[in-house]
């Protein structure tokens, strides 16, 4: 475990805490894409199939349970909580998620390290995570005034991606058993690039002390 990996996991965790805080205390999910949240739940379910069979470390298992539990409960909040669901911006969150799920699944069937059930689903989860943020970014662009919690949520998610890339570079040079193949690198870099535009406007609004507003 290096500092980049730990910091990446912590910003990922922070992004989820910010989101849960918004739903639990303010009872609002305004500006949050249910489509993206459902995709993340699917990402974790298909990636952590090894949770009961392969033990890496206590840290690893606890984090997996955290990501599974929180992603599923966020979807539950947005769909069924009688107050929270009223603030869901259904009319603007129109991105069709199977447009992302289907190509990712086909790609995972074709390009994978090993053609086994678990390996294909693990690869699928990597491809899907890379693009899962798209419905959220589309919704942000359609939202007039983005509140601070939503902005921070996406910021922490983007920071997590950036830190994971630093982690891979670090591990590549320091860990002789660690040689990632193209799959993780490519999908990881694609995912991080998707945030570049958001980061630009996030930092600009922060420096100007203005509300975050993405151009159409």
């Amino acid at each position: 475990m290096n500092i980049f990996r730990l910091a990446g996991d912590m910003t990922h965790l922070m992004s989820i805490v910010v989101l849960l805080l918004k739903m639990h205390t303010i009872k609002s999910c305004a500006g949050i894409s249910l489509k993206t949240q459902e995709l993340y739940a699917l990402v974790f379910i298909t990636r952590y199939l090894d949770i009961f069979t392969d033990f890496v470390s206590l840290y690893n298992t606890v984090m997996k349970i955290f990501f599974l539990g929180t992603s599923i409960s966020i979807v539950w909040y947005m769909r069924y909580h009688k107050v929270v669901k009223q603030s869901y911006d259904k009319d603007h969150d129109t991105f069709r998620h199977y447009f992302l799920i289907l190509p990712c699944f086909l790609l995972a069937l074709i390009i994978n390290d090993e053609f086994t059930f678990r390996e294909v689903l693990w690869t699928f989860s990597l491809y899907l995570e890379a693009v899962a943020i798209i419905p959220q970014l589309v919704l942000l662009q359609r939202t007039k005034n983005i509140d601070n919690l939503t902005g921070n949520y996406v910021f922490f998610l983007g920071a997590y991606r950036g830190l994971y890339i630093l982690n891979w570079i670090y591990r590549y040079f320091t860990d002789s058993h660690y040689r990632r193949k193209g799959i993780t690198w490519t999908s990881g870099i694609v995912q991080t690039l998707l945030y570049a535009d958001f980061f630009y406007y996030y930092i600009r609004s922060w420096r100007r002390n203005e509300r975050l507003n993405l151009p159409a």
């Binding site: 090894d50 392969d54 984090m63 997996k64 693990w122 982690n167 860990d175 058993h177 660690y178 193949k181």
Partner: peptide, 10 residues
Amino acid sequence: VSPDNGHDEL
């Protein structure tokens, strides 16, 4: 779990 392909990451 082999770390070769990053299965030890989250």
